[in-house]
Simulated scan of single mutants.
Amino acid sequence: MLSGTSLFPLIALDSPLAELLYWVTTSGTAPYGALTAIVLLGVCFTMVPRRQFIALVLAVGLSMLTTLGLNHFLKPFFGEPRPNAALMAQQSLLQLEEFYQLPAAQRRPMVSQALNQLTNVPSMTTAPEIKLSNKIAAHWQHEVGFSFPSGHTLFAVTLSMVLSYFLLLSGQYLLPLFLGLWSLSMGLSRMLLGMHWSQDVLAATVIGGLMALLCIAIILQFQQKVLPTRATVSNHDAR
């Protein structure tokens, strides 16, 4: 971000690497993001003690609701175009101001038409030639909202940090390492696929980290005050 280097368009978007990055980004795309969270919670259930797992679930729920609401507020507030939309605008295939004033349902056909021209008609400008796999083209047509911040990165970072906190408390290290790599791959995939700028991913990482820490602190405080500890229960039973 400091150097002004853009990761898009850096790789061929019809290559095996792009296909792999697409599946990484799909793990954070609705509704598959919910499935990702459920699977990870199921794995954590086998690794984390019951009391910590209850706190984990509460922290995940609170952090997901918080970041989802924050993401929906920040995107229209900043109104930043996505890199792929900016590229199509450079090719005179989209008028960004008009495009983002329309509802999402009307933006998708415009992106589809622009993609047909972008990929099928030889470019008359100095912009690089773009070739998309069918899956990535469909993803471009589906994701037509604003860019800042990266919702996928926000989801991955927040979920990974909350889960990793409780996993590390339980002496688990391998899964937190995997979650960290997944979060990093998510941010890179969003930039390489033309969905986000570097500042979108950086801001989402910082926001996600702060929200995860805040929600963990709130849930631990709630657990300490509301949920009885094992020692308290045992003393009560002894009486």
Rank of each mutant, 00 (worst) to 15 (best):
S3T: 15
T25Q: 00
L70T: 07
T26H: 11
L35T: 12
F78K: 11
P109M: 09
V121L: 10
A114S: 06
G208V: 02
V57T: 07
L68R: 10
V60E: 10
Q106L: 12
W182Y: 13
F78H: 10
A127Q: 14
Q117A: 11
S92A: 12
V24L: 04
P76W: 09
G209N: 06
Q224C: 09
S170R: 05
W197M: 07
L220F: 14
T36F: 07
L21D: 00
Q223C: 12
L20T: 15
F53R: 03
H196D: 01
F8D: 07
W182V: 08
L41N: 01
G69T: 03
T67Q: 13
H139S: 12
Y165F: 15
A34Q: 01
S92Y: 09
L179F: 06
Q199A: 02
A137H: 08
Q223I: 03
L175Y: 02
I130D: 01
V39P: 01
L40A: 03
A217M: 10
K75V: 02
R50H: 10
S150M: 04
T66F: 05
Y173G: 04
S185R: 12
V48L: 02
R51I: 08
F53L: 11
Q141S: 11
L94H: 03
S164D: 04
V157H: 03
P228N: 00
T67K: 08
